[in-house]
């Protein structure tokens, strides 16, 4: 074995190799963190008053109060209805939207408009959309359905457009070569290739919509969320817990169904 004599140093390479840049990142990062934490105005006094309130909160929360069972039941059903209607609306509208937003099919002008719509629909959290619709159209499931349809359309439109953009060109050309018109090309060349994805996404969408439909009621857009919000504001935390448990259960059930169906489709 050869002995190299002089000992050689080894140190692990730093994540950021340039030392100046590294120190800038470290300093700016920690300065920001200190500032942000400081800006929270977190003080122990509030913690101390918060603690008894938390204890009180939990004491009032248990046991969950199911005495207003019919209200919970109605809210859950409304959420379900909203999710079903919105999902149906958006999976139909998603077809023209995604064709318009697919670069390999659409024309430039239509493409830009469709993509702009998708970005708009995807960027705002559903709650924000819901509150605007409620302000415009009043309370109830109607603005809720609009909200869910709008945000779901953005989601579905984007993913479906991507699926269309990734299709096998050869198959489309083969159909076109038979002399089929535009509509028939879509039907025989494009549709079969994206259909499995479409069905899978539709079910996933129902899952997402149901989740959202249990929440947007907080701003008055229908569904079980409204009951939850009211229970909180009346300090009826035991009812709130009952509603919360109902929400968790239907969300989990839907997630389970959705993942089962989707894995069967594959």
């Amino acid at each position: 074995m050869s002995d190299t004599g002089a000992s050689t140093v080894w140190k692990r390479d730093h994540f950021i190799k340039n030392p100046i840049l590294r120190w800038i990142v470290i300093l700016v990062g920690s300065a920001y963190l200190i500032y942000a934490i400081n800006d929270m105005n977190f003080n122990l006094d509030r913690m101390r008053t918060g603690w008894p309130r938390a204890v009180d909160f939990f004491q009032r929360m248990f046991p969950p109060d199911y005495s207003r069972w019919t209200m919970i039941y109605k809210g859950v059903f409304e959420s379900l209805q909203m999710a079903i209607i919105a999902t149906t609306v958006s999976i139909f509208l998603a077809i023209p939207l995604s064709l318009a937003a697919a670069a390999n099919i659409s024309v430039k002008f239509v493409y830009v408009i469709a993509r702009a719509f998708i970005v708009l629909a995807r960027s705002f959290p559903p709650i924000l959309v819901a509150i605007m619709f409620v302000k415009a159209f009043g309370f109830g499931p109607f603005p809720g359905i609009l909200t869910l349809s709008f945000t779901a359309l953005g989601f579905m439109g984007k993913l479906l457009a991507e699926a269309i953009e990734n299709i096998d060109k050869g198959q489309v050309e083969a159909v076109r070569a038979t002399g089929a018109n535009w509509f028939k090309v879509q039907l025989y060349g494009v549709a079969p290739q994206v259909l499995p994805r479409y069905v899978g996404l539709s079910i996933y969408l129902l899952d997402i919509n149901l989740r959202a439909s249990t929440i947007i009621g907080i701003v008055g857009a229908g569904g079980i969320g409204g009951a939850l919000f009211n229970a909180f504001h009346r300090y009826e935390y035991d009812t709130a817990l009952a509603i919360l448990i109902a929400i968790i259960v239907i969300v989990l059930v839907m997630e389970f169904i959705s993942s089962k169906v989707r894995s069967r489709l594959q």
């Binding site: 074995m1 190299t4 000992s7 050689t8 080894w10 140190k11 390479d13």
Partner: peptide, 26 residues
Amino acid sequence: FRRFPQDAVDEAFSLLERVGLKGYHN
């Protein structure tokens, strides 16, 4: 924090050289 004793590092370097991997340590 990857702080290994210097004799281990020395030995690592010489073994790497022995098996023909000199210069590959990073």
